[in-house]
Nucleic acid binder design. Structure first.
Lengths: 153, 153
DNA sequence: GTTTATTATATAGGCTCCTATATAAATCAA
DNA sequence: TTGATTTATATAGGAGCCTATATAATAAAC
């Protein structure tokens, strides 16, 4: 029987990260909506930003989401005119996804708006502190990715 | 016109935090499900862990979610026998929410399972690094909370 | 005391994400 | 070449979050 050490949401990385994630999403959503994007679409936008094309499978892998999540996301983006699907000439199961011209045009302004908001979130942080935070988060994600992969066995 | 500095998902706190949050949720879900909880319910469980009662409004405020999100969460928890609603004698609009005995009983084992998982996520981190991460995340959340509050004007 | 404003919940609708499973095309084996 | 397996995408169903809005009870104003 362990001693009853009382538990504090604000001393553990997991709940702090969850809160930060939701706040970033709410704020990012407002920044990005005027340009016709939504915040969850940005990983896809990021991956296709140079005008290239990828399969859904590859997008899901690189954005680290499950395939059905990516499929739904792409459906919404296609519906909203942000993304185009073309049949893959080499594989009848697969389609190649790319951004539309409309999406590519709005991209720089969208990114600028989002970056501005993200800068505000780091108000009071020195450059070293930002680098420290990024480094720690990267290591944390490496651990988490391994754990997720391991549990998929 | 800005120079086209290319953009890297892994050098910015926002996407790193989003990824970590999703990984924590996936892993936590598996840890906690055998006990009949789901990961999003933990802030409620945490707030009511001593057997006390709170209104929905107060739970939402303390868990930093919107009221409708909390309402839905409590409906699911009531459906699953984790939570009980009693009418507030002083206010006919309000109900007092508390954990059921079943939920209170499963709480220590649930917390132990979750803590174990969260420890693994910090493999390779020194105590100082954990404290550094927590401190930086706390400051980040303070900034974000202010920004969210300010935009609600 | 009746009308008006505020407050606590509830409901509607949508996005992002998940797990589990179905379908269809491609590949591998016999 | 046919049959079994793998692979790419789609669909179903649900959790958790959000915004916007409706309902009902309380409080405030007149």
């Amino acid at each position: 029987m362990q001693p009853m050490i009382d538990w504090n949401l604000f001393s553990n990385p997991a709940p702090l990260i969850n809160m930060a994630s939701r706040s970033f999403a709410r704020l990012g959503e407002r920044r990005v909506r005027p340009f016709g994007f939504s915040i969850g679409q940005l990983p896809v936008v990021y991956l296709l930003r140079h005008g290239g094309a990828m399969s859904q499978k590859e997008l899901a892998r690189l954005a680290k989401t499950e395939q059905p999540s990516m499929a739904q996301m792409l459906s919404r983006m296609e519906r909203d005119g942000l993304v185009r699907r073309a049949p893959d000439p080499d594989d009848g199961r697969s389609q190649l996804i790319s951004l539309t011209e409309a999406a590519l045009e709005k991209l720089p302004a969208t990114r600028a708006a989002l970056d501005e908001g993200n800068q505000h979130a780091l108000a009071g942080f020195s450059e070293d502190e930002v680098q420290m935070l990024v480094g720690l988060l990267r290591r944390l994600n490496e651990n988490l990715d391994q754990m997720v992969a391991r549990e998929g066995e």
